[in-house]
């Protein structure tokens, strides 16, 4: 696996109470553990992102528990009602325990 790169699309500014759509994508192979290596015939061990959490100023907004049936480069789209200005935090947890994260600030127009 090359570098895992999270990408998020969050409006830079919004009105208080406005419902915004947030899109997230992270580059990850999401190995299911069911696929054989074509050269060696060995099973490629499972390695997926099993949890995704989006939070706003520490309060959870959206959580996804993920199984291997989610496609490679997992994509999630969800909504949030903007309570005010603040920072959104996104965290993806890998099977090996590593956590990939990114942040995005929302200003109130």
């Amino acid at each position: 696996m090359a570098t895992v790169k999270p990408r998020v699309k969050v409006p830079k500014s919004a009105a208080v109470g406005e419902v915004i759509t947030i899109k997230t994508l992270i580059s990850h192979d999401m190995e299911t553990g069911l696929v054989k290596d074509k050269k060696t015939g060995e099973l490629i061990p499972r390695k997926i992102i099993n949890k995704f959490v989006a939070s706003f100023e520490g309060a959870p907004v959206f959580t996804a528990s993920i199984e291997p049936a989610v496609s490679a480069n997992p994509y999630f789209e969800f909504t949030m009602t903007v309570p005010g200005p603040g920072t959104m935090r996104f965290e993806w947890t890998d099977d090996d325990g590593s956590v990939y994260d990114t942040e995005s600030k929302i200003a109130v127009a």
Partner: peptide, 18 residues
Amino acid sequence: VATFEFSALSGSSSAATR
């Protein structure tokens, strides 16, 4: 496949994925 959990901050209980 996946389980999504929403919260009081969610704009609506909806989500999309692949």
